[in-house]
């Protein structure tokens, strides 16, 4: 069976710059949870940006296939409507755009793609209530402009709340655990665990073993210097805590 996501020998760069991804291969099946770890500047966020089709990056070699189809030419919004979700390492503040208004537009854009009718305001609010209880998120955040003035932790929670609302097939979480206090980390992890599903794959980028105690991954990869240099199961992360990345980078 084809995997949900197949990344093969992916090379990519910031337009006009040098290669940052230097031959990534990664295969993610539906229902799986993958953790990607690795040193600062290794290219983890770059990989997530390229998967989400952020403008400004050039893929110079290799391929990305999603649901069995090559998505090289698919723009960011279409990828999102087809079920790819990126939780940003640095969620963007958008003054003047109300969080609820934005989220409803987004939910409906994705429903339309699936051939489902738009949610009206009251159906939408029902869904919001249901998903909010999943994540222990404060509803006053929904009345404010998207991420504006949210604390670091509130921004991260809002990302996971959006994930819960949009029900993606492939969720890429870029350091969603960074900047969370202990309680928030637990709440967010609980939320993500509730969103684990045989039809949904999760790729989480993290620096910390602690997250993996809460959300147990099926696979752990080390991304260093633009490549996946080692992979293992969840026990591999514990090993890394002790050994660090240096020996892997040298070996690569």
């Amino acid at each position: 069976m084809t995997k949900l996501l197949e990344v093969e020998n992916l090379h990519a760069r910031i337009a006009g710059g040098r290669d940052i991804l230097k031959g990534i291969s990664l295969s993610v099946g539906a229902g799986e949870v993958h953790a990607i770890m690795g040193p600062n500047g290794a290219g983890k966020s770059t990989l997530s940006a390229v998967l989400a089709a952020k403008p400004g990056y050039d893929v110079t070699a290799g391929s990305i296939s999603y649901g069995g189809a090559d998505i090289a030419d698919m723009a960011a919004d279409e990828r999102a409507r087809k079920g790819i979700f990126l939780a940003f390492q640095y969620p963007v503040e958008i003054p003047g755009v109300n969080n609820t208004y934005f989220l409803r537009a987004s939910v409906n854009a994705i429903r339309r793609e699936r051939g489902e009718p738009d949610l009206d305001a009251s159906q939408f609010l029902k869904l919001v209530k249901k998903k909010m209880s999943l994540l222990d998120i404060k509803d006053d955040l929904l009345k404010r402009a998207v991420n504006v003035g949210f604390s670091g932790g509130e921004k991260k929670r809002n990302e996971i709340f959006q994930m819960a609302m949009l029900e993606p097939k492939l969720a890429i979480l870029d350091e969603t655990d960074s900047g969370l206090d202990i309680d928030a980390l637990r709440a967010v992890s609980d939320g993500v665990n509730k969103l684990r599903d045989p039809n949904r794959a999760i790729v989480m980028i993290t620096h910390y073993q602690r997250l993996l105690d809460y959300i147990e991954p099926d696979f752990v990869h080390v991304l260093a210097n633009g490549r996946i240099v080692a992979s293992g199961d969840k026990s591999f992360a514990r090993e890394l805590e002790k050994t660090g990345y240096a020996h892997l980078e040298r070996a690569a």
Binding site: P91, I94, A105, A109
Partner: peptide, 18 residues
Amino acid sequence: DETALFYLQSRGLAPPQA
């Protein structure tokens, strides 16, 4: 703001809507 545009697009909004 290009970053904001990308954020909206990454949530499924087509460029004109964003």
